[in-house]
Amino acid sequence: MAKVSGNAVGIRKRERKLLVKGLLFTSPWIIGFLIFQLYPILASFYYSLTEYNLFKPPEWVGFGNYKDLFQDDKFYKSMYNTLYITIVGVVPHMAYALLMALLLNAKVKGQSIYRTIYFLPTLVPAVAGSLLWMWLLNSQYGLINMGLEAIGIMGPNWLVDPDWTKPSLILMGFWGTGTITVMYLAALQDVPKMFYEAAEIDGASKWRQFWTITFPSISPMTLFQLIMMLISSFQYFTEGMVFAEASQSVGGPENSLLFYSIYLYQQAFSFLNMGYASAMAWILFVVVMLFSLVIFKTSARWVYYGGDK
């Protein structure tokens, strides 16, 4: 008996020590959170339960905003557009970035140059980038449709046809995958080389090596990318605004570019419905959180941490 309780005390002591250590290490973020983030987040949640126009004191309406949202056509439309760009866009962009990272990780002459080139589009400011895209995607004299015509395909009216505006954005997104590629490159450096040597000796094919060594080794990075791209895709804003501007309206042709964050922004800063906009923000929060939780839960099956035992 005495021995057991002694053990329990020992465990508790160890746990407390861990807790102190853990809190010390995470304290920078915790302190920052308490000072800078907690208040705005709580305020936003409170606003979502009020009618608030940014100037007069918020008026409590309970879940009124949430109820109204579910009857708002544009809420659904913007959610649809956002889901579209997320579901169709995220995985191809990621796969593409990984492929590029693998190519750029191979030992070839001029590796540094290649790596820099692939990163360049990420660096080009949006003003220049959007001009180029308007140009490339132009249905009449754009390079893309000219290319398609050369192989006998009638290219669509990318920026005007509501069915094609979102695919245009996704297409454009491939050029912006430079940062993901860079992070994958960094992750690839951590794959122990001896694994490949062993596999080489066993005569495993490159394809097999990728799935048995590379992919599991960089799976923590894949998890990170998946979660972060999900979050940023659900908050898709800038590119949509730039494209919509070309068609001189907030939501683009037939609101096909009315993304969730854009509609939220419009509600908040153009219509001064900050309460409504905050409710939108919290619904998005729940949706993204649910998606993330599902990914985290399933990640146990495909993410391998070298630090795990």
């Binding site: 987040i41 305020a43 936003s44 979502s48 979050i231 939220l264 922004y265 900050m274 998005l284």
Partner: peptide
């Protein structure tokens, strides 16, 4: 993670 799931427009 939650802090970055809330769109900044609302905060």
């Amino acid at each position: 993670m939650g802090t970055i799931m809330l769109p900044m427009q609302s905060t």
